[in-house]
Amino acid sequence: MVELGRDEALKLLGTVQLGRAAFTDQALPAIRPVNHLVDAGGIIVRTHGGSALLGRALQSEVVAYEADEIDAATRTGWSVVITGTATRILDPGALARYRSLLMPWVDAEMGHVVRIQPEIVSGYRLVGVAGP
């Protein structure tokens, strides 16, 4: 494994559409698959009104976000984890912009937008290794 710098890790996050948001829900760890975009260094996700992630954003809580691209056959790829504060985006202009740029990948009302502002960014590039 080769450690990635912050800029390269965020750039790699921008090359994939799906990741996993991790947060605390009812005092237990929870992970949800979501699609995202990277904008101005922040991770942007759309969510529905009753989502646990939106609940964390309403309280400006710390969450984690992970995405990767790994080839099981070659054992190569990368993985990035960011940790930061989730906040709900309320600005009408920003909401309209993100709603036009980020289409929900599930068939549900996804009218809310959350920004995860990275405070800790860690990532690794997986380089090829010999087979078993």
Rank of each mutant, 00 (worst) to 15 (best):
D91G: 03
L102M: 07
L101K: 14
V113R: 00
A96P: 07
R99P: 03
V113N: 04
P118L: 02
Q117N: 04
D107G: 06
R99T: 03
R97C: 07
L102D: 02
A108C: 04
R99K: 10
P92F: 00
D91F: 09
M110R: 05
V106Q: 10
L90G: 07
P104F: 13
M110V: 06
L90K: 14
V113Y: 00
G111Q: 10
R97G: 05
R115F: 03
L95D: 08
Q117V: 14
A96K: 15
R88M: 04
V113K: 01
H112E: 15
E119I: 06
I89A: 01
L90N: 12
L101S: 03
V106K: 05
Q117M: 11
V114W: 04
L102Y: 10
M110S: 12
R99A: 11
P104D: 09
Y98Q: 03
Y98W: 12
R115H: 08
V113G: 00
D91Q: 12
P92M: 00
M110A: 12
P104V: 01
D107N: 14
G111I: 07
P118S: 05
M103T: 13
M103A: 15
R115D: 06
R88A: 03
R88C: 12
W105I: 15
P104K: 08
M103S: 15
A108L: 11
W105S: 08
L101N: 04
